[in-house]
Design a protein around this nucleic acid. Structure first.
Ligand SMILES: [Mn+2]
Ligand SMILES: [Mn+2]
Ligand SMILES: [Zn+2]
Ligand SMILES: [Zn+2]
Lengths: 138, 138
DNA sequence: CAAATTTTTGCAACATTGTTGCGTTTCCCT
DNA sequence: AGGGAAACGCAACAATGTTGCAAAAATTTG
């Protein structure tokens, strides 16, 4: 798994640094999405807050993770599994936020349904966030 | 219109105060959604930031406005036009964020399409946020 | 209408979250 | 291993959000 993180970083032409490896590993090993705060707590060594911000920023840009806006105003980040590249995200799946455990997960198999907009509106991106009780909490 | 705000406040059993009237009027007169920051700027008199936070909070609880999570982590608030009550929101319409003018609007006539979740997941709320170019910007 | 009671406001103080500049360290390439 | 580029940590700051409390305003009561 250590190997995997290195590969992904190399693939995206990012220098391989300790913080990037550790943070990326969190995403590779865990299941759900992580907020900045989650990462700060879960990462073993303590990297500077600024480093975590910058790491998430560049992971976003390079198409390694995508961000999920949630109702409580905490941005969640999750691994991109599809063909996302620099500035080109294609994560058109539904996100689920559990009101019980608080976890946010990507429902990779559930694609966002099409929606017909009024005349004059054109869409470039659609987000669908479902909240309720997840399968582990019922 | 001054009248209207008073009526809504009375209806929801809220004391009628200057700040509540002014802030509610912003929603009644304007077209789109407003963030905390928008309100701070647009409201003529300067109410304390805390008052605005508390006003939005109670408007949310009483079903006067609903909140819209957006990608840039700025919560937007918009008037409820349906039958929303204390703790019971029924604003199941799509929201549109224009990448050009930055405005967020409720597409009242576009209902959020149904989505089939994997086994074990149960949903209590679905948010759909579409971003692109609005009809005024094209 | 005026006094009593309840609610809301503004202020201060604080916590959390996010941003920027810069010197030092680490990484990459030859 | 050495030179140049990139990333890190630190400090300082800005923006956003929360809480307690006394003063002010609104509502209720007499
Ligand atoms: Mn996802
Ligand atoms: Mn709406
Ligand atoms: Zn759960
Ligand atoms: Zn627009």
């Amino acid at each position: 798994m250590e190997k995997k993180a290195d590969d992904i970083l190399k693939e995206r032409q990012l220098s391989i640094t300790d913080s990037r490896k550790k943070i990326l590993s969190l995403f590779l090993h865990g299941t759900g999405a992580l907020s900045h705060n989650d990462i700060e707590k879960k990462v073993g060594e303590r990297f500077d807050r600024v480093t975590i911000y910058r790491t998430l920023q560049i992971f976003l840009e390079k198409g390694i993770v995508h961000s999920i806006p949630t109702a409580d105003n905490s941005i969640q980040y999750a691994l991109c599994r599809n063909e996302c590249g620099s500035g080109h995200h294609h994560d058109n799946h539904v996100h689920f936020v559990c009101k019980h455990c608080g976890n946010t997960v990507c429902l990779e198999d559930v694609t966002v349904p099409a929606v017909k907009l009024p005349k004059g509106f054109s869409s470039s991106q659609v987000e669908m966030i479902v909240s309720g009780i997840c399968k582990d909490c019922r």
